[in-house]
Each structure stands twice: as C-alpha cells, then as structure tokens.
Measured scan of single mutants.
Amino acid sequence: SQTQRTQDENEARRIAEEWKRRGYDVEVRNRNGHWEVTWD
C-alpha cells in the first residue's frame, strides 16, 4: 500500500476519490492534524 499526506482535507478527499475511481481500496485518516490517504 502507499500513503500520501496533506494538510488539506479537501485535497485528501480528491486524492481518495481519484484512487477509488481507479479501483483501489482507499482509506482516509486524520492524524495529528494532517490527512493521510492510503491505497492498495
């Protein structure tokens, strides 16, 4: 799996939607004030 971090929730949601469209299983988490998008 791969993880991308961002400070911006909207960006995190956009990234998550992009990977979901490509057929990946995606998880979005808030950790210590930043957002992590993990896909595999």
Score class of each variant (00 low, 15 high):
23 G>P: 00
22 R>N: 06
16 A>V: 04
4 Q>W: 15
8 D>S: 11
16 A>Y: 07
36 E>G: 01
33 G>I: 02
14 R>K: 12
16 A>H: 02
25 D>Q: 14
7 Q>S: 12
28 V>N: 00
14 R>L: 10
27 E>L: 11
34 H>Q: 12
34 H>F: 15
36 E>C: 03
16 A>G: 05
20 K>L: 12
16 A>L: 03
23 G>W: 01
16 A>M: 05
11 E>Q: 07
14 R>I: 09
27 E>H: 12
38 T>D: 04
10 N>A: 14
1 S>G: 13
29 R>Y: 12
34 H>V: 15
3 T>F: 11
23 G>Q: 01
25 D>L: 13
20 K>V: 10
15 I>N: 03
1 S>V: 13
2 Q>G: 14
37 V>D: 01
38 T>L: 09
11 E>S: 07
19 W>P: 00
27 E>N: 08
39 W>G: 03
2 Q>F: 15
3 T>K: 06
8 D>G: 06
39 W>V: 10
39 W>H: 07
20 K>Y: 08
39 W>K: 05
25 D>K: 14
6 T>V: 14
40 D>N: 15
18 E>Q: 09
25 D>H: 14
15 I>G: 01
24 Y>G: 04
23 G>Y: 02
37 V>W: 01
17 E>D: 11
19 W>S: 02
4 Q>N: 06
8 D>I: 03
30 N>E: 14
13 R>N: 10
13 R>L: 11
11 E>L: 07
22 R>K: 13
36 E>R: 02
30 N>T: 06
18 E>G: 05
31 R>I: 15
13 R>I: 10
2 Q>Y: 13
35 W>P: 00
23 G>T: 00
9 E>L: 07
36 E>V: 09
30 N>W: 15
6 T>W: 08
18 E>M: 12
21 R>C: 08
32 N>F: 09
35 W>K: 00
1 S>D: 08
4 Q>R: 09
39 W>M: 08
31 R>N: 13
21 R>D: 09
23 G>K: 02
27 E>D: 10
18 E>I: 12
12 A>K: 01
39 W>Q: 03
27 E>K: 11
2 Q>E: 07
9 E>P: 06
5 R>C: 08
38 T>G: 03
20 K>E: 10
5 R>W: 15
31 R>C: 09
9 E>A: 07
34 H>R: 08
28 V>P: 01
11 E>G: 03
12 A>S: 02
38 T>R: 10
4 Q>S: 08
6 T>D: 03
1 S>P: 15
30 N>A: 08
6 T>R: 03
11 E>R: 05
13 R>F: 09
28 V>C: 04
30 N>D: 09
29 R>T: 13
36 E>D: 04
4 Q>I: 15
36 E>S: 04
